[in-house]
Design a protein around this nucleic acid. Sequence first.
DNA 1: CAAATGCAAGAGCAGTGCTCACAAAAGTGA
DNA 2: TCACTTTTGTGAGCACTGCTCTTGCATTTG
Lengths: 233, 233
Amino acid sequence: MWHAVGMAKGPTPREIARGENIARIKELALSQLAESGAGALSLRAIARELNLVSSAIYRYYASRDELITALIVDAYDDLGALLEEAVGTTRGPRRRWLDTCRAMRAWALGAPHRFALVYGSAIPGYAAPADTIAPAGRVVRAFCGAASDAVLVADSRPLGRRLGTQLDVSADALGLDVDRDTMLALTAAFARVVGLLTLELNGHFVGGFEPADDLFDALVEREADLLGLATSR
Amino acid sequence: MWHAVGMAKGPTPREIARGENIARIKELALSQLAESGAGALSLRAIARELNLVSSAIYRYYASRDELITALIVDAYDDLGALLEEAVGTTRGPRRRWLDTCRAMRAWALGAPHRFALVYGSAIPGYAAPADTIAPAGRVVRAFCGAASDAVLVADSRPLGRRLGTQLDVSADALGLDVDRDTMLALTAAFARVVGLLTLELNGHFVGGFEPADDLFDALVEREADLLGLATSR
DNA sequence: CAAATGCAAGAGCAGTGCTCACAAAAGTGA
DNA sequence: TCACTTTTGTGAGCACTGCTCTTGCATTTG
């Protein structure tokens, strides 16, 4: 029975060589990204540093956009995993929320180019393909999970019908079991954090809040208040 | 008496011709930006459409980055003026706030590439020169001015010393006469709006909130509640 | 062992930012 | 009006980019 057709026979030497090359390419791409920004990502330069002729790189990525897409997916995955870990190490609702937000900021500060890749403005003529929306969801799902114990304190204004269903489908798509008001508050919180990081990383705080550690902490604390996250007791 | 020496003699014909050329260049640059994104801005293409030889464009802008900087300054100025106008047409504190936020969103939706230019992630290897920080301040100043009647409702947590002074210098740099807690709340509100627009424009709401009109309105209303902006009576 | 497959080489196309020496205007003083 | 200076436009050229295509080699497979 060993010769069953659909068997998952291990990777051939060729495949593992290919995988290593792909890893090397991504690595070089990331370092290039960190130095010169997203628009300056050069396939030729990568090939050069890899002792490859320029055209050979296209055996691995059919286009520059394809490479960028791979980097975006990786960034989402890494950030998602990081947040999930921060959420996983539970220490009471409020603390979990604070740590998750701080983890996200730490990741963004440590790799601004990667943050820009996923939450910054789109690359030149780049249109994000559908492959990126699943990993993107992972991030916001983890983020929202950090505040799943929210018991809203703010008086809830009535929601419009359309917004109500939008909130429902969003929560559903993320696999979150929260009511509409909570979902709205979570979206608001996520937008706040993304906005803060965007402003900080793009230098909009220079001369004012620098470092922005205290600002970030204070606003995240206040958001925790709004979300009704009890201080761990 | 016409030949008075110190007279502010109008621009010479040469100067006005130059100004017109610069305007044309900017115009073409903007349309190119709208179609293909910031990274694809090509000086050669602009020169071509202008019936100029490629090198002649450098008589007007010494480099691509210099052109981009000019576009950024323009974008800040336009947005700033827009917000100032929205703030100026007073209709009660709360309404003023709502309208200003909506004006900002309308501007961003109408010219996503310009929004990306100023609040998106930095261009390729582009480092924002100091000339941009003044017009950038105009925008946030106008934005904050829209909520100058804020009477905070949220319980104010104590502020750290460093954050306190940061808030003071920020308010001072913007020429705003607000206390620390208000400045903090204004910064938070600005970050929220920027975050919302960033997410919306970069397609992070597709499949969930689309259109995001209702979401934006709801969150801006809630922010008005937090700021304690009384409904116009 | 032969055939099929994957990989790399190298030339080539069309485009880019930017520089430089030079020529044509355009404005200026005597 | 005529020489002079400043400004603008020209065209060639350098070094680079993404990407395509054909050709030759190596490895894997039947």
